[in-house]
Design a binder for these strands. Structure first.
Length: 932
RNA sequence: GGGCCUCUAGCUCAGCUGGUUAGAGCGUGCCCCUGAUAAGGGCAAGGUCGGUGGUUCAAGUCCACCGAGGCCCA
């Protein structure tokens, strides 16, 4: 007879092979309205708001996006599964340069430039482009299983968003934090337009290379020597920079005593052919403050053309960390209107940028007369001539070097001071400066990991004023007006509100700023508060995209009725980006940080720890992983590594993640396979009445749950995963479930032995499936659907359930202590069995009889269950056995192994003596069979 | 070049305030089972803690320098 048919073997239609790529699609259908349902379900519950940082609406998502959104999803779902209401509104960053450039490329295919069409037309094209990629990325995020309000995402190009942004700008203005000032930007003198850093292209170019001497005012025949390749910037020279710690030589020559960095003296002599002797050497520090005179600029001519006290400070020696001793003279000509570093150093010492050029790059007043009207590159020769005449030119040559060029017209660009709008770091927010208040707010925020605080702190401490204006088309306007009569700025909060309303009501939002005149945009009857003028011009500049996303707290969180988000979560690059722009904007506008916690993650790198790049060919696309293995594999990858560091990904790692996945999946499959005839409402065994082994595993489960909750709360997801995985492997699969087979399979279906075990399995299954749901979302839902069939009282999605808290009434400390010893004992018996196996005493544990001596007293308590626990046929307490093994782990313990007595029961496979048989099978089996 | 961070078995991670033979899971090797079966079980072998030099009675664990790598600046 085939006794296999009489056993309760596992039965389930939960497949071993996951086939996630297609199965997940079905689950997604089930989740279609899940966010809405969950919101309704948790109505009135405490809210958790993770505010989504908007990805840029360009291209498909890459693995970094996937990592970011999945981490957010895990945190959201953990909060959801512990009883909170989650408010998660995904967003996109839609304005800005990259889209403008894509659209310009499209235009060029049609032989058009952006100047050839209206701004509004151009903006429509940009909007369409952004819409397209919002759609694509949205589908990709949904496919990853990310739960959120995908039907109502926030887009920075939405009219309502733009309107709120304009209102926020109004708040910043009305608090006196915004101002206009000059700042050098890349400028194409042929296209007459500013260019972003990302727009310039570097190309080889030939330029003059000259050494110029500047006479010191208080020293006889002594000169500071500079080297430059842009003679045309000399009219805008306002200072000379040195390195404080460098050594400078006073070099006596026929040209006078020349000050040159000692280290560069050799190359200087070689290039200029000058000979002489070094009369002294001083540190750069000692040169600071020395005054020189300009070779061809008259100071009086500048009066009235320089901002603030700049005139008092010009033509002196200043320290700079930017001076290098690679080339030149170690003294650097400083023109704050024409150089980034010059500008930075100038600002530090109260020297405002100065640039006597028009938009076409021609010199204008108060440049020297001999230059007026000349274009910068034409002026080079005249300037050199002038220097030569005055005897200031030490050497002239040409150089071929890499120089920035316009990406459109391919001509060289210049760096030129232009008027920009700023938010001032030193402006006051109430009684403190924006910088001080922001630093204070940083202290009040929880940064995860903690070093994030230092990182953003040092950035806020050192950052310059925030330049918020851009000379571009695709963005939100800086909605201010200028009086045509007196040029003063009209930026009343009521006017911002008026414009915001217009934007809000327009289907194309801020487009109307560019189609309407100032008069149409202003409320009726506005007069200039200074001169009473009634004619105005509107500002044409738009806002920095960092301002767009920096106001998202006001556009997204406030309308929900909350004053700040619980958490921001982005890559560590956002310390400089979004975390900072949001902080500065929020502090400017409301006086406090927009977030309570900020969590940052690292970047994805390849298996060797190198950054992913197309040229290296080590890029892993999330879409590919999803199609090959499924989204749950991506999600499991996210929790398998510590995201605070670089997180590695490659074929080998994917293979391992897939292995881990199979183990967990099979554990669930085993639960389900053994619950096919279990109805919790009828068959459940009370904890106190359960088998001690079942009580033990449930008690262990409580400890595991405790750890899982702790690690989730600490955002240590890889530890959650390790906890779950180790529990599944070491305690469940290798021990509990293995030992349990006898009771599940052999006993009568409705027997206490089996029902007690099933009760434990049921609790394990429902606990673990919810615990794992935040990351293995698809699989958890799939398991859950099978559990619903077993227990109709369960909600119909795992996300409408909760992760159980550790339950004190399901713990038994004494039992855990007892089993602590029994498990160690079992390990030792396994070693003994392995030896017996090697020596041919037994092949399989069921063929063994085990003798145990030198054990601790607890063993007596569990004597009757011991053979099942050890998965052997017979156990005798006391000395004996053919193969002896003395434990090293448990000193005093001696394990003996012999071949089991009697014969194997064909039904339960355990060995019994003849007298223990009843017919063909053992008496235990006989009893089960007769009760059928 | 500067700021922040990382570097423990083949892989992913534990190792608190310095102190017995550095742990886990996976993978690998060998073996068992064929009643979780493209599953399950057992045993075993693998690190001297990126390198060097210090502090200390004692360092993976503190300090310095170097190297490799990441993010952000320049």
């Amino acid at each position: 007879m085939d006794y296999k048919e009489t056993l309760n073997l596992p039965k389930t239609d939960f497949p071993m092979k996951a086939n996630l790529p297609s199965r997940e699609l079905d689950i997604l259908k089930k989740w279609k309205d899940l966010y809405k349902r969950v919101l309704k379900e948790k109505d009135g519950k405490e809210a958790f708001i993770l505010h989504d940082g908007p990805p840029y609406a360009n291209g498909n998502i890459h693995i970094g996006h996937a990592l970011n959104k999945i981490l957010k999803d895990i945190i959201n779902k953990y909060n959801l599964l512990t009883g909170k209401k989650i408010l998660y509104i995904p967003g996109w960053d839609c304005h800005g340069l990259p889209i403008e450039r894509k659209v310009e490329k499209e235009l060029r295919k049609r032989k058009l430039r952006k100047e050839d069409i209206s701004k509004v037309e151009f903006r429509r094209m940009c909007r369409q482009y952004a819409e397209r990629f919002v759609g694509i990325q949205k589908e990709e995020f949904i496919r990853l299983g990310v739960l959120g309000d995908w039907e109502n995402p926030y887009l920075t190009m939405n009219p309502s968003y733009q309107a709120t942004e304009v209102r926020e700008l109004g708040r910043v203005f009305s608090r006196g934090l915004a101002f206009r000032s000059k700042k050098p930007v890349y400028w194409c003198i042929y296209d007459r337009t500013a260019e972003a850093e990302a727009e310039v292209e570097y190309a080889q170019r030939q330029d003059p290379s000259i050494y110029v001497k500047f006479p010191l005012v208080d020293s006889e025949d002594t000169y500071l020597v500079i080297w430059t390749t842009t003679p045309w910037t000399l009219p805008a020279n306002l200072g000379i920079m040195v390195g404080e710690d460098y050594d400078y030589a006073f070099f006596k020559t026929p040209e006078g005593t020349l000050v040159v960095a000692e280290k560069l003296l050799g190359s200087f002599k070689r290039e200029t052919g000058l000979e002489g002797e070094v009369v002294k050497v001083v540190k750069g520090k000692e040169l600071l403050g020395l005054e020189y005179s300009h070779p061809f600029v008259d100071k009086e001519r500048l009066r009235g053309h320089l901002e603030g006290d700049t005139l008092e400070r010009i033509w002196k020696v200043y320290p700079s960390e930017f001076v290098e001793l690679e080339s030149g003279t170690g003294l650097v000509h400083m023109a704050p209107g024409h150089g980034q570093e010059d500008y930075t150093v100038g600002k530090r010492f109260g020297i405002e940028p100065y640039s006597p050029l028009d938009d076409g790059g021609r010199f204008v007043e108060p440049a020297p007369d001999f230059l007026i009207g000349l274009r910068v590159f034409e002026a080079n020769g005249k300037i050199i001539e002038k220097l030569k005449e005055g005897g200031f030119l030490l050497h002239e040559d040409t150089i071929t070097h890499s120089y920035p060029h316009c990406w459109r017209c391919k001509n060289p660009v210049i760096f030129r001071a232009t008027t920009q709008w700023f938010i001032g770091m030193e402006r006051k927010v109430n009684s403190e400066t924006l910088r001080e208040k922001s630093l204070k707010e940083i202290d009040g925020v929880k940064w995860i990991p903690s070093y994030g605080k230092n990182r953003i702190r040092s950035m806020v401490e050192n950052r310059p004023d925030w330049c918020i204006s851009r000379q571009r088309y695709w963005g939100v306007p800086i909605a201010v007006f200028y009086c045509k009569n007196c040029q003063s700025v009209v930026s009343d909060e009521a006017i911002f509100e008026h414009v915001a309303k217009l934007i809000e009501e327009n289907p194309f939002g801020a487009d109307l700023w560019f189609e309407k005149s100032a008069e149409e945009l202003l409320p009726e009857g506005v007069a200039c508060p200074k001169c009473g003028g009634r004619e105005f011009e509107k500002e044409e500049d738009i806002l920095d995209v960092w301002f767009d996303s920096g106001v998202s707290h006001a556009c997204v969180i406030r309308p929900l009725g909350y004053d700040r988000a619980d958490m921001y979560l982005e890559g560590s690059d956002q310390h400089r980006g979004w975390f900072q722009s949001s902080l500065l904007e929020s502090v400017s506008s409301y006086g406090y940080a927009p977030y309570r916690e900020v969590l940052t993650h690292g970047f994805t790198v390849d298996e060797k720890g190198r950054k992913m790049s197309k040229s290296v060919g080590n890029v892993v696309a999330p879409q590919e992983v999803v199609n090959r293995f499924g989204a749950d594999i991506v999600r499991l990858w996210v929790v398998s590594e510590d995201y605070t560091e670089d997180i590695k990904l490659g074929e080998g790692i994917l293979r391992r993640v897939v292995e881990d996945y199979k183990k967990i999946r099979n554990t669930f499959r085993y639960f389900l396979g053994n619950l096919y005839d279990f109805k919790p409402s009828e068959d459940r065994v009370e904890f106190k009445d359960m088998h001690h082994f079942d009580r033990w595993i449930l008690s262990r489960l409580q400890r595991v749950l405790e750890q899982i909750h702790k690690h989730y709360r600490d955002y240590h997801f890889h530890r959650v995963n390790q906890e779950v995985r180790n529990f599944c492997i070491t305690e469940l699969s290798a021990l509990y479930l293995d030992v349990l087979k006898d009771r599940l399979y052999v006993y009568a279906p409705k027997s206490w032995e089996r029902r007690s075990a099933q009760t434990a399995l049921y609790i394990l299954a429902t606990s673990l499936v919810t615990a794992v749901a935040p990351y293995l979302s698809f699989t958890a839902e799939e398991v859950w659907q099978h559990l619903v069939k077993i227990d109709g009282s369960l909600p119909d999605s795992v996300f409408l359930s909760e992760i159980p808290s550790p339950n004190e009434s399901l713990t038994d400390e004494e039992l855990e202590k007892d089993y602590g010893y029994l498990v160690r004992l079992r390990d030792e018996v396994m070693v003994a069995l392995e030896i017996a196996k090697a020596n041919g005493v037994v092949k399989h544990p069921y063929q063994a009889k085990v003798y145990i001596a030198g054990f601790e007293p607890v063993v007596e308590k569990y004597k009757d269950y011991l053979n099942y626990f050890l998965t052997v046929s017979q156990v005798e307490l006391g000395s004996g056995g053919d193969e002896l093994y003395d434990s090293e782990e448990l000193k005093g313990l001696r394990v003996g192994v012999s071949h089991a007595e009697g014969k194997k029961c064909p039904r339960c496979w355990i060995f019994f003596r003849e007298e223990e048989f009843s017919g063909d099978v053992c008496s235990r089996c006989a009893q089960v069979l007769s009760s059928r």
